[in-house]
């Protein structure tokens, strides 16, 4: 088994928390993992990406080859499109639909979403609205993780366990809130697949 995942977003949107949660779940499930991150200059409001690879066999490259990614998880819709050359023909795009507009020439949201809808396998989710519904807009990235979890070869309980580990230090309330966000995202994908 192997899952090659591109995580995409804008610096500061929390893609590394998604990566960390999946990473913990993978390690707990005795899988090999390699996860490459972007640090430094691009973190200042630029586009950021992380290559996350999990497998039951040793992994060679830290970078996913173009055209081989099984999944793009993007917390921003235009950023989801930026990595389409990485996606395999059978791969899935799971993206948030709420734009992060910090540039003067950001395209119309409808145009962006039309391009997302043109991808064969996609889940487009208003993760911000769902996060607010379950209690906090800040858990948007965990809603995204929940929505994407359907396409990971890791049991859902392991991902829940990863969330508990990741947020454990912040107290039970924060853990519960994020578990709710995770389940809400998962439910959305199950219904809209």
């Amino acid at each position: 088994m192997k899952n090659d995942i591109i995580l995409a977003g804008v610096g500061g949107q929390g893609i590394l928390s998604i990566a960390a949660a999946i990473g913990l779940a993978a390690v707990n499930h005795n899988l090999y993992i390699k996860q490459s991150e972007v640090h430094g200059m691009s973190q200042r409001g630029g586009d950021v990406q992380s290559h996350l690879r999990i497998s039951d066999a040793p992994i060679a490259s830290d970078l996913i080859p173009a055209g081989k990614a099984d999944l793009i998880i993007s917390v921003e819709p235009m950023e989801a499109l930026r990595y389409l050359p990485m996606l395999a023909a059978t791969g899935w795009v799971v993206t948030n639909t709420v734009p992060f507009n910090n540039i003067p020439d950001y395209p119309e949201t409808e145009e962006i979403l039309a391009n997302v809808n043109a991808v064969k396998n996609h889940i487009a989710i208003d993760a911000e609205a769902i996060a607010k519904e379950v209690g906090s807009a800040r858990s948007m990235n965990i809603v995204m993780l929940g929505a994407a979890s359907l396409f990971l070869d890791i049991p859902f309980e392991r991902i829940e366990e990863g969330i508990r580990q990741l947020f454990g230090k912040k107290g039970d309330d924060v853990v519960e809130l994020n578990l709710k966000a995770l389940r809400a995202g998962r439910e959305y994908s199950e219904k809209n697949r």
Binding site: G45, G67, M78, L81, L84
Partner: peptide
């Protein structure tokens, strides 16, 4: 990266879909 090395080895590389033309650069900023 793996693709550059594949090309050097004479292997064919299949990329996914092209980036849609509406996607804009997002440079870092203060």
């Amino acid at each position: 990266n793996p693709n550059i090395v594949a090309k050097a080895l004479g292997m064919t590389v299949t990329e996914g879909q092209a980036i849609p033309s509406i996607v804009k650069q997002r440079p870092p900023s203060l």
